[in-house]
C-alpha cells in the first residue's frame, strides 16, 4: 500500500533521514520507534509531502507521490495526523470533523456514518460537539484529530506520536481504536516513544536511529530485540 524506498530527506540544508525504506500493508499497524531527534517526525512529514525528499521514492498504491504537495497527498488517500494533537482551535468539534471531509472520496451519507462511528467510539466528542476545539483537553484533541482523519477514510494513516502531551492512561483506548481501524483494511503507521504500551497493538515494528533504520521486526519480537544489545553508556 505504502512503500518508501531509500528515502533521503531533511529540512533545508539539514539532512535528517539517510536511506530509509519501509512498507506499510493494508490491515496492518507498523510501529516506528526511536529516540528523540532520530528523525521519526521528519520521516512522517517527508512521506506526507511537507518536506521534499532529496532522493528516494515514495509509492502509494504503486504511484509515486514524492515531492507532491501535502494537500494533494492527503486527497490521494494518505493522511498524516501531526504530533501535538493539532486541531483547529477556533472551530467547533463538529466543524473540525467536517474539515476531514476535504480529503474524502465519498458521499454525504458516508460522512454522516463516519461521524456517527467516531461519536460512538469517543462519546465525549459527541457530548462536546458544539464547543470550540481549544476547550478540549489534550487527549480529547487527539481523539478529534484522529476522528478528523477517520472521516477522510484514507488508504494509509500516519500517526505521529499520538501520546505526546497526553496522560499515559489515555493511550490504550486510542490505540485500540487504531487497531480496529486497521482491521477495516487501512494501512496504519504509528510513531511512538512509548513502545511497551504500543507494541501489543502493532503487527510490525521498526526502530530508527540517527536517521537510519536500525532494525525491523515483528512487533511481538520487539522487546527481545531491544534488550539484546547492552546499554552502551554503562
Amino acid at each position: 500500500m505504502l512503500e518508501v524506498k531509500n528515502l533521503v530527506a531533511g529540512y533545508g540544508t539539514i539532512p535528517v533521514l539517510r536511506d530509509v525504506s519501509l512498507t506499510a500493508k493494508a490491515g496492518e499497524i507498523l510501529l516506528i520507534g526511536g529516540e528523540n531527534g532520530a528523525g521519526k517526525s521528519t520521516l512522517m512529514r517527508a512521506i506526507a509531502g511537507f518536506n521534499k525528499p532529496d532522493s528516494g521514492e515514495i509509492l502509494l498504491d504503486g504511484k509515486p507521490i514524492g515531492g507532491t504537495a501535502p494537500e494533494k497527498v492527503a486527497q490521494s488517500g494518505l493522511r498524516l495526523v501531526l504530533d501535538g494533537h493539532r486541531v483547529f482551535p477556533e472551530l467547533s468539534v463538529f466543524d473540525n470533523l467536517r474539515m476531514g471531509a476535504a480529503a474524502r472520496r465519498g458521499d454525504r451519507a458516508g460522512f454522516n456514518n463516519a461521524v456517527e462511528e467516531i461519536y460512538s467510539v469517543f462519546p465525549i466528542l459527541k457530548e462536546k460537539q458544539k464547543l470550540y476545539a481549544r476547550d478540549l483537553s489534550g487527549g480529547q484533541q487527539q481523539m478529534l484529530a484522529l476522528g478528523q482523519a477517520f472521516i477522510a477514510q484514507p488508504k494509509v494513516l500516519l500517526c505521529d506520536e499520538p501520546s505526546m502531551g497526553l496522560a499515559q492512561a489515555l493511550l490504550p483506548p486510542i490505540l485500540a481504536f487504531l487497531r480496529r481501524w486497521a482491521q477495516t483494511g487501512t494501512a496504519v503507521v504509528i510513531v511512538e516513544q512509548h513502545l511497551a504500551v504500543t507494541a501489543p497493538y502493532a503487527d510490525r515494528a521498526m526502530i530508527i536511529e540517527r536517521g537510519q533504520v536500525k532494525f525491523s521486526c515483528l512487533a511481538s519480537d520487539l522487546d527481545e530485540k531491544l534488550n539484546a544489545p547492552a546499554h552502551a553508556a554503562e
Binding site: G33, E35, A38, L195, I207, A233
Partner: peptide, 8 residues
C-alpha cells in the same frame, strides 16, 4: 529515558 528505545 532509555526506555524509548532501550539502547541509549
Amino acid at each position: 529515558m532509555f526506555v524509548g528505545s532501550r539502547h541509549a
